[in-house]
Every structure is written in C-alpha cells, then in structure tokens.
Design a protein around this nucleic acid. Sequence first.
DNA 1: TTATTACGTTCAGAACTCTGAACTTTAAGT
DNA 2: ACTTAAAGTTCAGAGTTCTGAACGTAATAA
Lengths: 110, 110
Amino acid sequence: MAETSLGAKIRKLREKKQYTLEKLADLTSSSKSYIWELENKAPPRPSAEKISKIAEKLGVTVEYLLDDQAIITVGDAADARFYRKYQQMNDKTKAKIRSFVDLWDEDDDG
Amino acid sequence: MAETSLGAKIRKLREKKQYTLEKLADLTSSSKSYIWELENKAPPRPSAEKISKIAEKLGVTVEYLLDDQAIITVGDAADARFYRKYQQMNDKTKAKIRSFVDLWDEDDDG
DNA sequence: TTATTACGTTCAGAACTCTGAACTTTAAGT
DNA sequence: ACTTAAAGTTCAGAGTTCTGAACGTAATAA
C-alpha cells in the first residue's frame, strides 16, 4: 500500500498514545474509516479542520504533520508545539518542569 | 456576506502584505476565485495543503489561522504563569528547555 | 466448536472543494 | 467622455473528501 509521510506520522503517534482508529476518530469528529484512509491511502488531502484536530489530539503541530521535510521549528510554531506537549503531561510532571524552568530562568533569562 | 473568522484573518494579512487575490493565489498554487471564497464565503473548509501554504506565505501558523478561540486556552493558573514566563525567555533558552522536555516526555508519556 | 468482543478494512455515494472562464467594478490616462 | 488595465466577483461542474454500514480477522472464553 502506498505509504505516505503523513500517514506514517499519524499511525506512529496514534500507536504511541495507544489509540485505536475508533478512539482517534471519536476524539477528532471523524470516522474510523477515514482515519484508516489517512494512514494507508495515497495521496490524502484532508481538510484543515480534520488535520488540525488530529494534530491537537496527537500533541503535534499541523506543520509537523504536513511538512514532508524534517523541519527546524523556530519561533511561534515551536512554542505552540512545546506548549501543547506540556499541556498533555500529567500534573506531577508539569510541576517538575515548572520548578526546573524556574531555576534556569534565574541564571539565564534576559 | 457571511464573514468568518478565518476569512477576516486571511484578508487582513493579505492586505497588510499588499497582495492582490491573484498574487496570493499564485504564491499558494490556488485560483484567485478560491482565495476570494475563503475570505468571503461561509463556511470554508479548505484542505490542509491549501491552508498550510497560505499560512506560510502570510507569515503565520496554521493554528493561528484556524483556531477560533484565543490561541491557547489555559486550563490552570499555574500553567498560564509558566507559559508566560517561558515566552519571555530568549530563543536559546527556549530551545534548551524544549529539548529537555522532549526527553522527559519519552519516559513519561503513555 | 461456537459465541463474543475488539480492532481493522472496504466501498458506494452524498456533500464538498477548487478551478477556469466569464463577468463587473474601480481607477488612471488621454 | 472613452480606453485600457488591474482588481474583484460569480458560477458550472470535474474531481475529491468523508461518512455509515458492511465485512474480515484474531483473540479469549465457555
């Protein structure tokens, strides 16, 4: 089957989160058959709305999902991605990161 | 005519860059009639590919164009404080924190 | 074996995107 | 006024997205 870059990314992220096709479909107001198509059929051209919800639930940016090349994320996009990731962590981890960043901030920030 | 949030953002950014419909269409492999529809007709549901190119040429993220709400909805006051702090740091520090958090995520996510 | 359950796969077709070409408007020049 | 050009607007229809429902497969249990 034609394996696209987008499809491979979605499947990898979905499996890492242990979501079934149906689970991810529910989270993103999609059908499981469509999620399956995105992962397995070429060439998908999903709507921005779909890919935006999918990116959100998988904890990445739209840019990351769509860009064929590896991207060097700078500026706002990187910040958005970072924050999305942070939000999805559990409270204990969040607290650890915050106190860690507080220390870093003292020394380094200008 | 129905004025959507997405349409308004695209027009504002396009006019700020002094692009005509045709110019933006050329830059994004679209037709000018379609760019016009995005700006003026409701409800647009453009493909991820289109909106990605448009965001790129207008110098914003896909998330900024699509999210109806304020960019980030904060669940928790501590998160909000943390993110404000993070945003004010310099790029090098931000990058360090991000890669640090990426590592943390590997262990912890599930 | 025969349920049952959970997950993945296939496909017809309604609904929608997006284009090309024609048309209208606005503005500047003579 | 008339011409020309540049920008915006409209629309039919080819082609695509996306869903719902049916089907396939594998695992577990009685």
